[in-house]
Design a protein around this nucleic acid. Structure first.
Lengths: 251, 251
DNA sequence: GACGGTCCTTCCGGCCAATGGAAGGTAAGT
DNA sequence: ACTTACCTTCCATTGGCCGGAAGGACCGTC
């Protein structure tokens, strides 16, 4: 055993997640694998510092101080900053949910998002990770990912909705077309009633550094217009991405 | 002394701030008031867990794992979510930098922000805190703050630019007008070349829960139109803010 | 090429702070 | 009144933390 105090405290923080935003002391202890008394002491300390806050129900949640800290993280800061205005343009032109995402290991990491009043409800949130084979931005990133990654992902095509592509051969063919045509689409493959289009964002050296996508209820009618708008925005982002700003993002 | 290990680790994290996003090991140790060897051990542990990341320069920055955690914090989550679409509308209508802010003790805390291509460069950032007496959103929040808070703030009107209002009597008169007219303005009081207009966002019970503001290079020409647009957006946000969604935000 | 500076990393024995079982208190459900 | 589940406090034991010191890497400067 011999786990250090620090790592225990961190494990308590790690017990929080998208599915577990509010936890009682005892569930925190359980999830972190700590004796209740120990968890109690550590949680009290985290709470005193402001890393955790306590709701009036007695449950603990991530505190404001960690929110502050999180915002300081240089997670693709250069990319986010460069892309922000273009995302707004794109939203203005389409009034659809707009996504900016990068690849994180075998998943898609959503870096920024805009959704308006009438947008289709979608699962994604800034900071959330979703499977690559079932999202528009995911397919774009997968199509341009290094071969080993693609291999790994193709082995684990789990079904999300009835329309999710789960046959490796079929997905491979789609990826080929993504590279050839320069955009990817999905049709209710991640969540019912949501279709998406996405294009690659290319950095100064021409390599794909991110994907830009939008989610709409129906794709058939104006795919051409959407792809055009996406391309304009993606090119704009790429132009702004000088290597100076870009170096900040870390793996 | 007798500072616990955990609080020492947290102090190391607390050494980061808007002005100090990247720190070397030794400056971390200095800022946290820890012996180098101790800091080294703790930082290594934080790094291993992913709370800190290391740039290729050897400096440490806040890591992705803390970014993830921070996004889980329910810091005005209900408000942010409710307001988001209206912020975009507002940006679309004005093409100016748009701010959503709440009061945090004696300062303004920026909850969300949109800035486009041509917007005036401004200091604010999501998560940053600025003085209330020199910003549009600040004046709105101050005008509707409880008396003790207003008293405190009026005693500390430090000058930021040559145009900053530093006479308590004059600011009080402005706040009176803010309450009467329903909007606040600033003219280069926080940063040169930036003027702002802001209006209150009222919750279900009519109390002021946030402020909505925009920053423009010049105010004289279309103040009326901007105020009108702001009011529409603020009312929209207020309407969406059911008490159910609102309870999440914590002090 | 020796020197002064700043940085990072490793080591290890003394000592003190973290540990966690146990007991007591609260609250809700049966 | 019993049961279950939660939170909080206490304290004797002990094992992990502490941090001075030593060593190494990497600048620039003389």
């Amino acid at each position: 055993m011999s786990t250090s105090v620090t790592s225990r405290a961190l494990d308590l923080l790690g017990a929080f997640g998208p599915e577990h935003r509010a936890l009682t002391l005892s569930s925190l202890a359980r999830r972190a694998g700590l004796p209740l008394a120990t968890a109690h002491r550590l949680v009290a300390e985290l709470h005193r510092w402001g890393a955790l806050a306590r709701l009036d129900t007695g449950e603990y949640v991530i505190g404001r101080r960690l929110w502050d800290l999180g915002l300081l993280a240089p997670v693709q800061a250069g990319l986010r900053q460069a892309a922000s205005p273009f995302l707004h343009d794109l939203y203005g032109a389409t009034l659809a949910t707009v996504h900016l995402a990068v690849r994180d290991e075998l998943e898609v990491l959503y870096i920024d998002r805009i959704s308006g009043h009438a947008s289709v409800p979608v699962v994604s949130k800034v900071g959330s990770r979703l499977p690559m084979h079932a999202t528009g931005v995911g397919k774009v990133l997968l199509a341009h990912a290094p071969e080993p990654v693609r291999g790994e992902v193709l082995q684990r095509l789990h079904r999300v909705t009835p329309y999710t592509v789960t046959q490796p051969a079929r997905l491979l063919e789609q990826l080929r077309r993504v590279r050839a045509e320069g955009f990817a689409t999905t049709g209710e493959e991640m969540s019912p009633g949501a279709c998406s289009v996405a294009v690659p964002v290319r950095g100064p050296d021409g390599e794909v550094v991110a994907a830009l996508g939008i989610v709409v209820p129906d794709l058939r009618r104006e795919r051409a217009r959407l792809v055009a708008a996406l391309r304009v925005a993606a090119q704009g982002i790429g132009r702004v991405l000088t290597s100076a700003q870009w170096k900040q993002g870390l793996a």
